[in-house]
Nucleic acid binder design. Structure first.
Lengths: 153, 153
DNA sequence: TATTGTTATACTCTATAACTATA
DNA sequence: TATAGTTATAGAGTATAACAATA
């Protein structure tokens, strides 16, 4: 233990994390996206062609939930399911051109969001914070780019 | 912006925050408590005698939700509603002795949790992290001790 | 009429499990 | 028989709004 007074780092992490997630949700709502949809788009872009099962495992969600998520993005022309001719049970997921374009806008929103959250810190402290957080995330085995809290919204 | 490669601090905050919140929920589940119940117990202990409306405003939850929360803790003999004789509409909330005792165990769980989350960092870095997080929380006007994500579980 | 606490209702989200089609 | 995807169902949790008691 470091200092028994005041809230511990773990509480501050949870508090700030929930705050940051909420603010991010507000921002991407302007792109008519929810956080889980955003996470899925990023996961597809990171490695196109994966099956829904593979993505469900990666994101830690039941396959049935992924179906609804993909349906929504598919109807909007952001992703497409491509049948695998060798195994017709599989749906390889890919971004469409519109999906790629939207991903670019998501990246912009992400940068603005990051600046808004970390802006109160001077650059040097901001870099230190990121290094510390990255070390913790790695130590706990968190999957890079996958938010365990994409269960909401 | 600091460094465009890899996830930003805001994403890491959200990711680690959700992870920390999940782990904490697991720990206090052994005391048969949910995170919102825990937050309410702490809020009552911080300033006994407040009304349900005042607590609802503090925690950012609709009053109707607080009723169910208080009901559960009341039935278990952890909190009690005391009628205010001057204004009989008001219910002043207090912890019972059992509630105080449980609060002590919650504090223990909190310390163990904090150690588990931050343990991977050496003590000096852990202190730095906490200072940085505290600065950010204050800059964003987050209410001390109140988790915006107590909407789940 | 306004406010505190409560209850009732409806809605969203989710997981579980049954189902189909392919293998 | 086993697997990928889908659909159906049921449950938990929530907010909104109506309601009763008190001021």
């Amino acid at each position: 233990m470091i200092d028994p007074s005041g809230p511990g780092s773990a509480f501050l992490l949870a508090q700030l994390g929930a705050y940051a997630a909420g603010r991010f949700a507000e921002r991407i709502a302007e792109l008519e996206l929810t956080p889980p949809q955003t996470g899925l788009l990023r996961a597809i872009a990171a490695e196109p062609g994966r099956s829904q099962q593979a993505l469900a495992r990666l994101l830690g969600t039941p396959p049935s939930r992924l179906v609804a998520l993909v349906d929504g993005l598919d109807e909007r022309g952001l992703v497409e399911r491509r049948r695998n001719p060798d195994d017709r049970r599989l749906h390889a997921l890919h971004l469409t051109e519109a999906g790629e374009a939207l991903l670019g806008r998501i990246a912009e929103v992400g940068r603005a969001h990051d600046d808004a959250i970390c802006g109160p810190l001077p650059d040097a402290d901001r870099a230190r914070l990121r290094a510390l957080l990255a070390r913790l995330a790695e130590a706990h085995g968190l999957t890079p780019g996958v938010h365990p809290g994409y269960r909401r919204l």
